[in-house]
Design a protein around this nucleic acid. Structure first.
Lengths: 212, 212
DNA sequence: GAAGTATACGGAGGCTTCCTCCGTTTTGCA
DNA sequence: TGCAAAACGGAGGAAGCCTCCGTATACTTC
């Protein structure tokens, strides 16, 4: 379920060391892009991943392909975490956590944004596919909350994504705490109007999220 | 009037050779960006302008500053041409010509677009200033047409710009002829509803623009 | 579990581009 | 005309890109 067939183009499963290095590279690249922007030297990324530059180029023949892979990987992680949160928390809390996770993911992708935008303009499927996955994850969380009666049922996954995404985009860089607060506010709105129980009584432990 | 004090930071007028080389560089850069995108080697631009790389760097210390200067220069030229057209043509024809000129200018700026967008995101004044100048030029043309009774009077410069710009942006690259046709269509709409004279009778020579 | 083979690793090195620095040339002024 | 300030131009060091190929590692077969 979490084991996703990453980019193996139907030929043959990657060798174990190749899979490991690919993950190391994606992690290092995400960190480097977040810290230094999309222009960071590829050799730096290879070094901080602990692999040679040749290995990087074998996995990602161009800078763009690396940026794209990092982005898809981040979306993967975000969507998988929706399932994980739903397994371990009540639906409304899972939703709240996921929305905050979303904010943090966007914040770390700031350095890549201009490169990403250009790539999405050139290849709309990149945008469509990742968006569809994120919408699916959001829908799952919303549905679970609606079924439990702790989240209002008249909000679609696409709407939620648009709202949270919009908040993240409109608040200036270096201020993801502002995004975080606004998204928490949005979440409170989602709880109001839930069908079965009075909104604030449903969360058994009155969370620290909305305080302050 | 056309003699604009380009970037001389209030210190001293540029020497004659410096002015000349600056113009050569802007022209060469515009052509190079249009032909090869914003990543074209700066040395190529210097060579095709017939100057040394040192001269390029003296005028434009960074690639971004060159891109920005090219963009501002293009907007300058476009806005000045509005005056020139108004001097030599009836207002409605001047407007039609200017709109087509706009399409061509956008088409040649395609290669710079992604770089430009990133720069505008980083520095909103670049967008605001150039936009204000373009709006002023459009307003002048519209007002002249409205005063002559050959162009409807209820359209603002900002609206015209938004419409023409939108058409240019939405039609795919490599298809500026489509933009051209759509903009011609838009122009016909502007002529209809003109106050004094019947729309199609005002242009003394029935132009070739709207045929086909 | 040993041998063989396909696959992946890694970094040296050639190439391109960036950008500074400074000797030379040109311009504008007195 | 002579001179000082300004501009020119390109050599060259630094940095990054990306390929290539000898070496190392993981799977497969017996």
């Amino acid at each position: 379920m979490i084991d996703i067939d990453r980019s193996a183009p139907s030929d043959r499963p990657l060798r174990a060391d190749a899979v490991r290095n690919r993950e190391l590279l994606l992690d290092a690249a995400a960190a480097a892009f977040a810290a230094q922007g999309a222009d960071v030297p590829l050799e730096d990324i290879a070094r901080s991943a602990g692999v040679g530059i040749g290995t990087l180029y074998r996995h990602f023949p161009s800078r763009d392909s690396l940026v794209e892979a990092v982005y898809r990987h981040e979306v993967d992680v975000l969507c998988e975490s929706a399932d994980r949160l739903l397994d371990s928390l009540p639906p409304d809390q899972a939703l709240a956590e996921w929305m905050q996770l979303f904010v943090r993911h966007v914040a770390t992708k700031r350095g890549m944004m201009s490169a990403l935008k250009a790539m999405m303009a050139a290849d709309a499927t990149l945008f469509d596919q990742t968006r569809a996955r994120a919408v699916a994850a959001a829908t799952k969380l919303l549905d679970a909350g609606a079924a439990a009666g702790t989240v209002r049922a008249d909000v679609k996954g696409a709407d939620l994504l648009r709202a949270v995404g919009g908040i993240c985009m409109s608040t200036d860089q270096e201020r993801s705490d502002a995004s975080s607060r606004l998204v928490a506010l949005l979440f409170d709105g989602l709880r109001h109007g839930a069908s079965s129980a009075p909104p604030l009584a449903t969360a058994s432990a009155p969370g620290s999220r909305t305080s302050g």
